[in-house]
């Protein structure tokens, strides 16, 4: 096992195993850092949501905590003007393509976006940006759950659950850039895919894109 080292996060002394990723060390020690795409078991972090920025003494720009291995004597700040600025922009960017109708959302109250807003004092609406129109496509073909692409933040946790935990391979990313999305093979309905309705992808979803049906 890697040796234990002491690091400082926001003035708090924390003991961690060297090489462990900073994000998980912070979260285990009750220091909140916003994050959507991180999966602890992933050997190479996705680092796609760009929310877990922190500042490390001695480096000039903020770095993502999910990719940052812990080193002895590291001094970390989770809130600095540079960090807050990046998080604020990344958050607003994500909201700009997220269909904001929390009142009707099954994840209302347990949504990661709401949590980030609460923890970081961010508003759940757009200041500088215009919403990107996204067609409302809801796939409710499975018996037990539904997929609302308009709420998807493309974190990829469902794909990880589907491919690596369930070992099914029903959903994945397709297309690229602004058209990137979660789909089945040939954009079929989930009911037409190899999906076994194990529900692991629904549990992995941090927002209200994948949700269990009420009855």
């Amino acid at each position: 096992m890697n040796r234990k080292v002491v690091i400082i996060i926001d003035g708090q002394k924390i003991t961690a195993r060297e090489g462990e990723k900073l994000l998980w060390v912070a979260l285990e020690n009750k220091v909140y850092i916003p994050h959507l795409c991180a999966v602890k078991e992933q050997e190479r972090p996705t680092a796609g949501c760009r929310l877990c920025f922190v500042e490390i003494e001695g480096t000039c720009n903020p770095v993502t905590a999910c990719t940052q291995p812990v080193k002895a004597g590291m001094t970390v700040k989770t809130r600095t003007p540079a960090v807050d600025r990046l998080v604020r922009t990344a958050f607003e960017l994500l909201l700009s393509e997220h269909r904001l109708n929390c009142g009707e959302c099954p994840k209302n109250g347990s949504c990661e976006l709401q949590k980030i807003a609460r923890e970081r004092g961010l508003k759940l609406n757009l200041h500088r940006l215009k919403p990107l129109s996204k067609k409302v496509i809801i796939d409710d073909s499975p018996r037990s759950f539904a997929f609302d692409a308009g709420r998807c933040v493309l974190c990829g946790r469902c794909v990880w659950a589907d491919h690596r935990i369930a070992g099914v391979g029903a959903i994945g990313f397709s297309r690229r850039g602004i058209h990137r999305r979660i789909t089945t093979f040939a954009d079929r309905e989930l009911a037409q895919s190899p999906c076994t309705e194990c529900g692991l992808c629904v549990e992995a979803c941090p927002v209200g894109a994948l949700y269990f049906k009420k009855n």
């Binding site: 929310l51 994500l94 700009s96 990107l132 850039g177 602004i178």
Partner: peptide, 18 residues
């Protein structure tokens, strides 16, 4: 660049679009 963005990360996918 917006058309060629892979779409993985928030800043490039959405930032360049805006």
């Amino acid at each position: 660049t917006q058309q060629e963005s892979c779409g993985k990360c928030t800043f490039c996918r959405l930032g360049t679009k805006h």
